[in-house]
């Protein structure tokens, strides 16, 4: 019990620190990896709280799949949070209009 308590308190401190880092970090790629770390620590929390099913789900979905879809989004949008405003107008040609044929 003592072991679990120590592990849990240390992980709680790391968890809150990583969550704050994920919010304040300007580079979104680092922020996304930090959310992956949040999921990893939560998985250990669920295991300590005797929920192995939930821990397995969080490990599979929260760490791997959620992180990768965030990274794909960053690949297709901007990486930095405070990007400079673009000076050209929004173009509707490159938008995905369904062509009627």
């Amino acid at each position: 019990m003592l072991f679990y308590t120590i592990v849990l308190i240390i992980l709680a401190i790391i968890l809150l620190g990583v969550a704050i880092y994920a919010v304040v970090q300007k580079d979104l790629l680092y922020a996304v990896i930090a959310t992956g770390v949040i999921s990893l620590i939560l998985s250990v929390f669920f295991f300590i709280l005797q929920a192995p099913d939930v821990a397995l789900t969080e490990a599979a979905i929260g760490i791997a799949l959620t992180t990768i879809i965030f990274i794909i989004t960053i690949r297709n949008t901007s990486r930095m949070e405070d990007e400079m405003p673009l000076d050209h107008e929004p173009n509707s040609e490159s938008d995905n209009q369904v062509e009627t044929k």
Binding site: P52, D53, A55, L56, T57, A60, I61, A64, L65
Partner: peptide
């Protein structure tokens, strides 16, 4: 055992 359709599908 712990696990099931959702976890296995995600893996």
């Amino acid at each position: 055992t712990p696990g099931g359709g959702f976890q296995g599908g995600a893996i």
